[in-house]
Design a protein around this nucleic acid. Sequence first.
RNA 1: GGGCGAUUAGCUCAGUGGAUAGAGCACUGGCCUCCGAAGCCAGAGGUCGCGGGUUCGAAUCCCGCAUCGCCCGCCA
Length: 559
Amino acid sequence: MKEDIQEVVYKSLQAIDPKIDPKDYPIEVDVPKRKEFGDFATNIAFLLARDLGRNPRDIADMIIQNIPREEKKLFKKVEIAGAGFINFYIKEHAIINKLIDIEKHGESYGNCDIGDGEKVLLEFVSANPTGYLHMGHARNACVGDSVCKILSAVGYDVTREFYINDAGRQMDLLGLSVYRRYEQFFGIDNDIGEDGYHGEYIKEIASRIREENGQELLAEGNKQNDSIEYCKEYAKNILLDEIRKDLNDIGVTFDKWYSEKDELYKILKENGQENLIERIKNELSEKGALDKREGAIWFKASEFGDSQDWVIVKKDGSYTYFISDIAYHYDKVKRGYKRLINVWGADHHSHISRLQAALRALGPDDYLLEVLLIQFVRLLSKGREISMSKRSGTYVTMRDVLKDVGRDVTRFFLIMRSSDSHLDFDLDSAKDQSSENPVYYVQYAHARIGSIFEKAKEKNLFPSNNSLNFLDLPDEIDIAKKLLQFPEVINESAQALAPHKIAFYLQELASGFHIYYNKHRIIVEDPRLSSARLFLIGCIKTVIAKGLGLLGVSAPDRM
RNA sequence: GGGCGAUUAGCUCAGUGGAUAGAGCACUGGCCUCCGAAGCCAGAGGUCGCGGGUUCGAAUCCCGCAUCGCCCGCCA
């Protein structure tokens, strides 16, 4: 509906002066906060006034005068307000009739194609397989998944990817920790070390290894290294399975699990011995972006927009995590993705600029990488914070929370705050099946409508758009307007990568329905009015289901 | 010392330069003979952290300051 207004204003501007370029004057149309200011308003007259050196009100008047006759039919009135706003008041029946779009498109209502099929790679979660997922990962997973759904809805071709960090020191520590626990089962007194993993699950994994292998793995020297390597692979596979299972339980799936070890260290056939990391190193070297200093090799990030240089090959000849990261992201580009979006915890923010610097150095395209930073989650119970540290063996996992409060509530809670705000996840209010819980509020509206449909069916009443002119209550017009804003809400949340906007919208829409329901009966004497009202609430049901779907939350017919 | 984020009602938070700043919770008082009370209605609650600036207009943009969280490793 908003586009219709933009079109009207544009036509009027064309009538005034065909030379006006819409690129110079983007026509902003929004819904005023206050009802008295109409259904839509534009500030275009202010923008033109500045450049034309004329009074905004005069320009607004001119625009109104030049709206083509045909287009004027849409409006009850169009007027100048304040210092030069133009307020549009749409005819009620035009709004109500627009609802037919919702029925026509059903589940796909609100979708569009502004993404134009562009290939987007969304990398999210990417938790190290060294432990169970905690609520920070869960927030990343839910936000990432929802962003994927939203971007798909606006026409992008989205691939979802999980990067498995299975090479490097953390994995070595994991293998060693498991092996030490294994040794302890045979009375060997050892020390896991401060850097090691201390969780109970490490013992459980070691125990399984003992059950399968007895004491065969006890060894010294090189043979012991083989045993540690075995423990590492064994633990990795178990933990990856657990991560996959947890993600599955919360409704998050991936198109590709990209293994650092398998993909980046794979020998490239066409080039003899070289692997992807070496190739990237060579490419960076050819571009003059590397420097040998203090026995190490540095990427000169400071020459490509970052604040300092970074080591990519250590003094001992081994790679840093950073060069794997560069290779991985360059590989994303090579795989044909035009847009790379990463969902990262806020503690990784310093990696953004250096990675962007590396991509810039490799060229040719600039600024390919967008990062959606997610601030921390604090888990609260009875007003107290619960520890989520991975090193202490006692952290509360995502699995624990999921079991406790369920998928829908977990997802909604993790999504309903802006990503750049810290999030307090209050277990007590999450568990509360009451009005304090916004997810039930929205789901309840959906279920209530389902229930009304059942009741109507008994009386042989069904939704119909044959008598929409019966919908003339102000409450009905308000709801219709709200429903018609939905495509714009999806758009905005896609643009800002901000699923929480949908969560807020749904609460407002549900509120509109509950108010309407309490004030007016849906099923009334006149079957034509009943059918029209059923049609209206059917539209609400469709939009709620669609919106909850974008958040990965179910829309039950009963609860 | 540098960087990122935050600071809005008692609490948790929306608010992408627009008109009189919003919601939920909590609090007070009402509403089921009636399609689901997990609901609705009414009330009260504000120096948008502080100080400058930009302009027709600033919670929103810019500069400075304060406070809180996170980061600044040849770990990942």
